[in-house]
Structure formats: structure tokens, C-alpha cells
């Protein structure tokens, strides 16, 4: 097999006070062709873009082919056991909970 192209998917990172949400655009990837691996605080997302094989039937090509790959480092503030993933319309959404002790908290003033 020839060397595979790596596509870096466009992403969005946002958070609320309880959760961090990560969205990655991976058109052509179904949930069966997606791998999410966590190892030593490293979150690695790989998705195989499904392309039909037209051999000589391609008349014009602009779409990128290959494999989507993106990596993130998980900070101590997030609970890596809480990661949830959903694939919808070519967008992967991952959510991870922020650990209780890392959440902003109010300090009461005494006196």
C-alpha cells in the first residue's frame, strides 16, 4: 500500500464550567472507521476517510484523500475516564468532564 496522506481535521474547542467539548470535521468517516486512543495523557483520534474506488472513472478530483489524524494532550484537570464520543454528519464530538477540584469555586468571606 502506498504511503497514506494525513489530513488534519478542522477543530473547535469549547468549554462550560463542567465540560470541555471538542469537535472535529471528518467528512467521509463513519463511526466504524474511527479510532480514539488514550495513552499516557495523549488523546489520539484517527479516522479513515471512505472513498469509493473509480479507478479510471475519476473525471475531476478536489477532495482530499487519506486518513484524518489529530492528537491532543489531556491536562490533569480533566477526567479521562469521562470521555464520550459521538459521530454525526461527519463531525466527531468528544466531551470530557472537568475534575471537581479544577472547577472554579467561590470562596466565602468570613466575618
Amino acid at each position: 500500500m502506498s504511503k497514506e496522506n494525513i489530513i488534519v481535521p478542522a477543530g473547535k474547542i469549547s468549554s462550560t464550567k463542567d465540560q470541555i467539548t471538542l469537535q472535529l470535521e471528518m467528512p467521509g468517516v463513519s463511526k466504524d472507521n474511527l479510532d480514539i486512543i488514550i495513552e499516557n495523557k495523549l488523546l489520539r483520534i484517527e479516522g479513515e476517510k471512505q472513498m469509493p474506488d473509480f479507478k479510471n472513472g475519476w473525471l475531476h478530483r478536489e477532495r482530499r484523500t487519506g486518513k484524518y489524524v489529530k492528537e491532543y494532550t489531556l491536562e490533569d484537570e480533566v477526567d479521562e475516564n469521562s470521555i464520550k464520543a459521538a459521530m454525526n454528519k461527519g463531525i466527531l464530538t468528544l466531551t470530557v468532564d472537568i475534575k471537581e477540584k479544577a472547577k472554579p469555586r467561590k470562596i466565602a468571606i468570613s466575618g
Binding site: E25, M26, P27, G28, P52, F54, G57, W58, L59, H60, R61, E62, R63, R64, K89, G90, I91
Partner: peptide, 22 residues
């Protein structure tokens, strides 16, 4: 959006990447 265009004996096929579109 990027498109691909292909053909076989019976049809032409157009592919367009539009993630997140309803």
C-alpha cells in the same frame, strides 16, 4: 466546498464534503 466527479458505465457521481450540514 471541494467536489469530486466520477463516472461508471451507468452514472455520473458527484461527491461534496459538507460536514455538519443538515
Amino acid at each position: 466546498p471541494a467536489v469530486d466527479f466520477a463516472e461508471d458505465d451507468d452514472n455520473f457521481y458527484l461527491f461534496m464534503d459538507i460536514p455538519g450540514v443538515d
